[in-house]
């Protein structure tokens, strides 16, 4: 087997299939999108090269910047919610009763498909028959809000299910990281007289800092390119009040049939994601590599 792995041709043969797949499904389309973004194209007829006109328009496009703002807002909320997930994981990884069951309960939303979650929350938010407004009426609030129809709260109303949806995922990651901290370190700290707060803050958190960094990148990038629930629940409406970058891209390419401009939005999204990832990595870089 070792002999085989030293043969460059064999290595090439083995990586070729997945390389082909990646190229055709990911990298070539990215290059194509970049190419289309310089074109005026309705998706059907002939393309016309217009150089940077799409990008110039993008810079002036108020709706685009509004969607960028909404995406970043989602990213901020997602990162804040990470703290909550971390707290839950810290509790779960301690030896409490029913931790096993609770972990499964937290994970279930992740197993549901986005569309199912959207349908569920659409029913919760329904202005007259919804669970939430029924409850508010029961509490004596006469005119409960129209959660998804009111432009001032529609976006935040969708943030709730998005954050709920990913809770299980991040809790699982943190839980696994916390569980991999060797018991000997914890025991040593306890013998030294550390209380549970100190244990969590001084021992556990620094030890899983690497994982936390990764989840921040995941949460930020995932938020920036988020699409599913927004598309199903409001379609970006009312009048763009809940539009994010990805839904705006879809709107432009597949609703307005402006593929050139849609590609420009898509490519800008990619650039934004790369830039933000790089920034986060740079800001959180540390030289210490933790080894157990």
């Amino acid at each position: 087997m070792n002999k085989m792995m030293s043969d460059k041709k064999v290595i090439a043969l083995y990586i070729l299939p997945s390389l082909l797949l990646l190229l055709t499904l990911v990298y070539i389309p990215i290059v194509m999108t970049g190419y289309y973004s310089f074109m005026k194209w309705d998706g059907i007829g002939r393309m016309e090269f217009i150089a940077l006109d799409n990008y110039k328009e993008l810079l002036k496009d108020k709706m685009f910047w509004k969607s960028v703002y909404h995406s970043f807002l989602l990213a901020v909320f997602s990162v804040i919610s990470l703290a909550g997930y971390l707290a839950v994981s810290l509790v779960l990884s301690g030896k409490i009763k029913g931790a096993h069951l609770l972990r499964k309960i937290y994970l279930i939303p992740m197993l549901l498909s986005s569309v199912a979650i959207a349908q569920l929350w659409l029913r919760i938010y329904h202005p007259s028959n919804g669970m939430l407004n029924h409850f508010l009426l029961f509490l004596g609030i006469d005119d409960p809000p129209n959660w998804l129809a009111d432009p001032s709260i529609a976006l935040y109303s969708i943030f709730v299910p998005i954050i709920w949806q990913y809770a299980g995922f991040y809790i699982l990651i943190y839980y696994a990281a916390l569980k991999s901290i060797p018991a000997s370190i914890m025991e040593a700290a306890i013998i030294d007289g550390a209380n549970p707060w100190q244990l969590a803050y001084k021992i556990k958190l620094p030890l899983i800092a690497g994982v936390v960094k990764v989840t921040i990148v995941l949460a930020v990038v995932g938020s920036l390119k988020y699409f599913d629930l927004i598309y199903v629940m409001t379609g970006g409406g009312p009048n763009g009040a809940s539009e994010v970058i990805a839904s705006y891209m879809y709107q432009k390419a597949f609703r307005s049939f402006n593929f050139g401009y849609g590609s420009t939005v898509a490519f800008s999204l990619l650039l934004i994601c790369v830039l933000v990832t790089w920034l986060i990595r740079k800001l959180t870089r540390s030289n210490e590599e933790i080894q157990y």
Binding site: Y125, P127, S128, N146, A149
Partner: peptide, 20 residues
Amino acid sequence: IKGFNGLSNDEAKAEFTNEK
């Protein structure tokens, strides 16, 4: 109907067929 800007056509139709 209440919240019409956030309701899909199918949801609105349901209000009509439920005689609300």
